[in-house]
């Protein structure tokens, strides 16, 4: 008897061969996501915009026309396209464009870093709570609910107020505010996956909880969590700007979009368009992040 002979009527002819796609067509989940994104030109456009914004912040020293902190009493509150100051100058005569480019560093850091940390921390707690269920779930999720009970802005102001200003404290504040919602999303996703038969099949094979979490739960929970996290980036930028605006964020003269908006507020009647420029930066960035996360959600919503 040959080793490779297939027995049983179910296995006789293999007409499956006919419908099998060539190997190159077999893509993994992430391959499928990319295939969908590739043709979603709107999302790709905004993704490119985000890359551009991030790059311009990172390379601000190279591309900024002026020193962002160099004041000039002579050229205060100049309009758009005033000589080399394309976006005008602020109340101390500093170049707005340069300050927006440098300010992007702070604002993007505020937008991205807290979300990354909150995704890891909240995701971890959420996955544990969702998989363990029972008392562990109750303790973790009720703990998160304490933070959930307050509107996020109020919570941020309260934490920031008690910690004091400064960049590190602002990062901590934002992380604390963003963790509970991410935890909730991770918990929901995990408890859904937990009830799937393939998790039971893994348990029935004698696998340890850690192995099941890594091989079966995390891989499935990660896409809803990532999609949600990407929506939080713009929320975090806005929240950070708000805190800076209220004087609870970074301290002057560090350029920051929220802080710029706050200080330029007094000159609103003198140079309204120039004063709105940091706001425009915030607007464009958060819209870009929101639309990209929207496209990401659609692309990740691949069946199976």
């Amino acid at each position: 008897m040959s080793d490779l002979s297939i027995t049983g009527a179910g296995a006789t002819a293999d007409p499956n061969a006919r419908e099998a796609p060539p190997a190159s067509q077999v893509r993994g989940y992430w391959g499928n996501v990319w295939q969908r994104l590739r043709y979603d030109y709107a999302t790709l456009f905004f993704l490119a915009l985000i890359i551009l914004i991030v790059a311009s912040a990172v390379f601000a020293p190279l591309i900024a026309p002026f020193d962002p902190n160099k004041a000039s009493m002579a050229h205060r509150l100049k309009p758009l396209f005033f000589r080399d100051n394309i976006l005008g100058t602020d109340e101390q005569g500093r170049d707005i464009l340069s300050r927006i480019l440098y300010g992007g560093r702070t604002s993007l850091l505020m937008g991205i870093a807290p979300v990354v940390v909150a995704t890891i921390v909240g995701g971890l707690f959420g996955v544990v709570a969702g998989y363990a269920g029972g008392k562990v779930n109750t303790i973790i999720m009720r703990g998160m609910d304490v933070f959930f009970a307050f509107p996020s802005v109020l919570l941020a102001v309260a934490i920031s107020g008690s910690l004091g200003g400064g960049m590190i404290n602002q990062l901590i504040t934002l992380t604390v505010v963003l963790t509970p919602p991410l935890c909730r999303v991770a918990e929901t996703a995990t408890s859904q996956i937990r009830s799937m038969d393939f998790v039971d099949a893994a348990r029935a094979s004698g696998a340890s909880t850690t192995s099941i979490l890594f091989n079966h739960v995390l891989v499935n929970a990660i896409s809803p969590v990532l999609v949600y996290a990407s929506t939080l980036v713009s929320a975090s930028i806005l929240l950070a700007s708000g805190l800076s605006f209220l004087g609870l964020g970074v301290s002057p003269p560090t350029p920051d979009w929220g802080l710029m908006l706050s200080t330029l507020r007094q000159a609103l009647y003198v140079q309204p368009i120039v004063c709105a420029m940091p706001g425009v930066a915030i607007l464009i960035t958060s819209i870009a992040f929101n639309l990209v996360s929207d496209g990401l959600r659609q692309a990740m919503d691949v069946k199976a």
Binding site: A9, G10, T12, A13, D14, P15, N16, E19
Partner: peptide, 25 residues
């Protein structure tokens, strides 16, 4: 005895064969 099963599976509706779609089975 074994059940007299129809071998194979239905055709892919994205690429139907030109003739009778049941012919391959």
């Amino acid at each position: 005895t074994e059940i007299e099963a129809i071998p194979g599976s239905p055709p892919d509706l994205r690429h139907l064969p030109p003739g009778c779609s049941f012919a391959p089975r």
